[in-house]
Design a protein around this nucleic acid. Structure first.
Lengths: 233, 233
DNA sequence: TCAATAAGTGAATGGCGTTCAAAAAGAAAA
DNA sequence: TTTTCTTTTTGAACGCCATTCACTTATTGA
C-alpha cells in the first residue's frame, strides 16, 4: 500500500510548510501580531485546516522550538565528530559549538526560550505534553553529548561527570546569555566587532577567565569569606 | 493647595497598587492567562479604571520591568559603595553583584527580558515610548557603573574603557544566562547546591575560566587558526 | 459508479483587551 | 446648603482573533 505512505509524506510536508509560513510571519510581525488568518493566507490554505495539523497556535510555537533543538543537536554531533577526527583543540571545538549555538538561536531560539518561561509558570506559551516531552529528551541528549566532550577532553579542569555537568550548565548559560546580549543589542551593533569575533572573545574569556590569575581565590573553601566581610589581602 | 498634592500621592499609590496586583497575578497565572478583569478584581477597582493609570496591559508589563531595573540599579550602587568602603576583593564584590542580579531577576527580570524580544521584533510585548526610554536610561546607567568598577579594580585584565565594556557585556550575558538556566531548571533542583553556592561557582568560574591554563591559547591573534582547520599542537 | 473516509472550508462562537457614554464622587462657587 | 463644574469610576458595548463545527469537496477501495 504505497498510498498510505504517500499520504503520510504529504501530510508531513504540509505540516512543515505551515510551520515555515508561521515562522516567517512570527519573525517579521511577531507572534502576537500574527493571526492564524495570516498564517493560513501565507500557507495558502484555510484557517480551519491549520487545526488538522497543529493543536493550537501555541503548539506551532512549541513545534518550532523542537525543530530548532533537533537542528542544534545534529550540528553539535557533527561538530564533535569533526573535532575528534581532526584532533582539534578543545578551544577550537568549543568555538564551533558556540557558533552552532548562535546559529540555532537566531532563527529558533526565541521559541525555545519562551518554553523555559512556560515551564516556570509565566506561561507565555502553554506546551502540549508530547511536544514538551520530545523537546526535553532532545535537549538532555545535547547536554549529555557536551558533558562527554568535557570529560574526555584533557584540556578541562573538570575531572568527573558531576564537575563536567556543572561546566556544561555554565557553558549553556553563558552562551544563552551572551547570545541574548549580542542579539538584543541590535545583532551586535553595540559591539565594535562581528559575530565571529564576538564568539571568539566569549570562548576565549570562558577558557581563561577575566581576572589576572594572581588575584583569583582558586579554592571555594570557606565560602563566607568571599562575601562582604572579607578585606583585601 | 494641599488637595492637589494629596491627589497626586493617591494617584501614585493607586498606580502602585494596581501594578502590584498585576505582578502577583502574572506571577501565579502567567501574563497571557491573566485577564484585566482579574487584575481589576485583585486591585478592587473596575476594568475601565485601569486605563486611567496604564496605557495598556503591555504597558503594565513594561512598567514592571522598569521597576525591576530601578531596583537593581540601586542595589548595584549600594553594593559597589559598600565594597569600596570595606575594601572587598573584586571577586567578593562581583559575587554580591551577582546576588543582586539574581534577586532582581527573580521577581522582575522576566518582564525585563520580554522587552529584549520586543526590541528585536518578536514583539511579545510592544513597549510604550516613554517607558522604554526610561528603561534604557536606567540600564545604561547600571552598565556604566559596572564598567567603572571593572576599570578601577586592579584585579581585572581589562585595561581601558573599551576592554572593560566588553567584560561588562560578557558578565551581563553570563549572569543572564546562568540565572535562566538555574531558575528554568526548577529553581536549581537540577543542581546539587543552593543558589548561594551556585552563584559562588559561577563567579569563581568567571574569574578563573574553565580550562587548565596550560591549554589555553591566550592571544586571539590569527583568528582563523581557532577554527576547524587547526590541529592540536 | 458508488459508498465511505479523509481533507478542506469559512462562517459562527466565545473570550478578552480596549473604548466610551454615563453615573457617582468630589471640589469650588454661590 | 445648593448649584455648578471637574474628576473619578463604572460596566456594558465593540472589535479582534483563536478556536470550533456543520458542511462541502476530493480521494480511496470496491
Amino acid at each position: 500500500m504505497g498510498v498510505k505512505e504517500r499520504k503520510e509524506r504529504e501530510k508531513l510536508q504540509r505540516s512543515q510548510d505551515i510551520l515555515e509560513a508561521a515562522r516567517r510571519l512570527f519573525e517579521s510581525k511577531g507572534f502576537l501580531n500574527t493571526t492564524l488568518q495570516d498564517v493560513a493566507n501565507e500557507a495558502e490554505i484555510s484557517v480551519g485546516l491549520i487545526y488538522r495539523y497543529f493543536q493550537s497556535k501555541e503548539d506551532m510555537f512549541a513545534s518550532l522550538a523542537l525543530k530548532g533543538a533537533e537542528q542544534f543537536d545534529q550540528d553539535l554531533e557533527a561538530t564533535l565528530k569533526k573535532g575528534a577526527r581532526k584532533k582539534n583543540t578543545a578551544q577550537a571545538v568549543l568555538t564551533n559549538i558556540a557558533k552552532s549555538f548562535f546559529d540555532f538561536y537566531s532563527p529558533y531560539g526565541e521559541y525555545f526560550d519562551m518554553l523555559l518561561y512556560s515551564y516556570k509558570g509565566l506561561k507565555q506559551v502553554q506546551i502540549q505534553g508530547s511536544t514538551l516531552t520530545k523537546l526535553m529528551s532532545v535537549t538532555l541528549g545535547s547536554l549529555d553529548k557536551l558533558k562527554t566532550f568535557i570529560v574526555e577532553s584533557p584540556e578541562f579542569r573538570a575531572e568527573n561527570d558531576d564537575e563536567a555537568l556543572q561546566v556544561v550548565f555554565l557553558l549553556w548559560g553563558i552562551l544563552l546569555g551572551c547570545h541574548k546580549i549580542f542579539d538584543g543589542s541590535g545583532r551586535g551593533h553595540l559591539f565594535a566587532f562581528s559575530r565571529e569575533v564576538f564568539i571568539d572573545q566569549v570562548v576565549q574569556q570562558i577558557m581563561v577567565g577575566i581576572a589576572k590569575s594572581a588575584h583569583v581565590s582558586q579554592t571555594s573553601e570557606n565560602k563566607s569569606a568571599l562575601y562582604d566581610e572579607r578585606p583585601t589581602l
